[in-house]
Design a binder for these strands. Structure first.
Lengths: 193, 193
DNA sequence: TAAAAAACGGAACAATCGTTCCTGAATTAG
DNA sequence: CTAATTCAGGAACGATTGTTCCGTTTTTTA
């Protein structure tokens, strides 16, 4: 009876992620969304409700994507320590090649919105806990395998890793383009493992 | 001949820092500024030009205040390593007692604006360089005094410290209130020194 | 073919945005 | 006292904000 949906909702969400990530929530106007998603105003509002709902969906999708790839990367790793360094090196590569420096969508949203929007705060906290747990489990495994020093508790190391990941993403968002700066930080971080 | 200025410009700037810090640039309206600074719309615009100029002046003042106190703290320290841990412990205390979690005004501004406002980007980069240098000099001194391990280069450690400071401020901004989380991070950081 | 739904384009909404301008009162120094 | 300047208050500016609504076209399936 009815016409079938033409655009893929997830593809639209990926577009939304891009522009929210780049410009932030307050910096992105409804017109920006229309232009970037390639949808009409009406379709956009019919499909996603309003700007805030669209943002929340975008952030949740981003979170899921990142957690999945992180999990996969660490679970399939032969050497946990090497895998962790690879994750950071990858973040550095992205930061350097990013012509429009976007940083991390989750970090950006934390800073901009967590404080004023309880729904965003919930997502941020959930992300923090989940990522921390992923790190912690892997580090424990690495310690059992003798790949990572067990001088420090796994939980402490996981939180430490998470903290430095945030820091690096802020650095990238601030526009740092000197590879040496990142390399210095990475050197210090992984001298601990 | 003329009436003298009644309000102190620096006091007004301190008020501006407060609200910009709390709400961000885009989140702070002209009306917010009028209410919080206690100035009339006209006085505000006569004195500071426009919103962007006021923001820049606020951020510059914040930067100066922080760099001064950081410099003083480290220069007067007997033991550099202890002084560094004190700086971080202080940041944790502030993060925990901050009922409205503000994080760090400089970090917040980096994330929100550095990418879209070249003037802010300049301030952010200048701050990064300056703070890094302050850390680096002190760490060198600490290494010469045998208070800090010289296994790592001072420059690398300075950048590492800066990175973790950013991370912690993001964590605070995101609303983290569990002291154990901060303590775990600090423990890991300073096991390196 | 007819009904149902999807999508578009665009007009229109009230609200808020940053900013400018004007008036009038307050205060100062000559 | 007078001229100059600083404030407050508020009206008003055009622009932009997020959002709603309507009319039309397109596509689908029963």
């Amino acid at each position: 009876m009815a016409r079938t949906k033409e655009f893929n909702e997830d593809q639209a969400l990926d577009k939304a992620i891009e522009i929210f990530w780049h410009k932030g929530y307050n910096g992105t106007s409804a017109q920006d969304l229309v232009n970037h998603l390639g949808l009409s105003r009406s379709s956009l509002y019919d499909t996603f409700g309003d700007k805030q709902k669209l943002f929340v969906k975008s952030l949740q999708r981003y979170q899921q994507q990142n957690q999945d790839s992180l999990k996969e990367l660490l679970e399939n790793a032969e050497n946990i320590k090497i895998a962790l360094t690879e994750i950071f090196k990858q973040a550095v590569v992205e930061s350097l090649q990013d012509r429009i420096t976007k940083g991390c969508f989750m970090v950006n949203s934390s800073v901009e919105l967590a404080m004023h929007d309880p729904e965003i705060a919930k997502i941020v906290h959930n992300n923090q806990k989940t990522v921390e747990d992923i790190f912690c489990l892997s580090i424990k495994k690495g310690q059992e395998l003798g790949q990572i020093s067990d001088k420090q508790e796994a939980r402490s190391l996981a939180r430490f890793i998470f903290n430095n990941y945030s820091g690096i993403r802020v650095l990238a968002r601030a526009g740092e383009r000197d590879k040496q700066v990142y390399d210095d930080i990475l050197k210090a971080i992984f001298s601990l493992f």
